[in-house]
């Protein structure tokens, strides 16, 4: 399998289209014959990241590199940034408004889930500038 690069625009505040990028990546990985367990991990981690961009950042860009040994996902937005990353990583911590909770999101489990389902995760965030989340899922 040769390296494959995919890019997606994620629209802000649109919960109908949210998840379409992760869905597309999932389909591609399945088509490439990637291990189903790894496919599920990539799909869930990327969906959580997409939802975060939709809720908090007015959208952003997702880029995915698929190699023989790993899938690398980079989610970049120009949203408000995360003032305290270690606090944001805590299970149950959320700044999502009640309207978002009514949709089933905002449980404060998005970032912890992204960490849980990936082998590497790095958050680079500057308040007022934006956030870039890089995640890697190893393929064995």
């Amino acid at each position: 399998m040769s390296s494959l690069h995919l890019e997606f625009d994620v629209a802000g505040n649109n919960f109908v289209s949210a998840g379409s990028a992760s869905d597309e990546v999932k389909k591609t990985l399945k088509m490439l014959g990637v291990d189903p367990v790894a496919v599920r991990k990539v799909a869930i981690a990327m969906y959580e990241g997409e939802i975060n961009m939709v809720i908090h950042a007015g959208g952003g860009k997702a880029s995915v590199d698929i190699d023989t040994d790993k899938v690398k996902i980079v989610l970049a937005d120009e949203g408000p940034g995360i003032p305290d990353i270690s606090l944001a990583m805590k299970d149950g911590y959320s700044t999502a408004p009640d309207a978002i909770r009514d949709l089933g999101f905002g449980a404060g489990m998005g970032l912890p889930n992204m960490k849980k389902y990936t082998d590497e995760m790095h958050i680079d965030s500057t308040v007022g500038v934006g956030t870039t989340v890089t995640m890697v899922v190893n393929l064995r």
């Binding site: 919960f15 109908v16 949210a18 998840g19 992760s22 869905d23 999932k26 599920r40 799909a43 869930i44 969906y47 949709l103 089933g104 999101f105």
Partner: peptide, 15 residues
């Protein structure tokens, strides 16, 4: 008891 369209995305991705 959640019944909106996000349920479909989660059901599909979580399999």
């Amino acid at each position: 008891v959640m019944s909106n369209h996000n349920v479909a995305a989660v059901a599909a991705l979580t399999e």
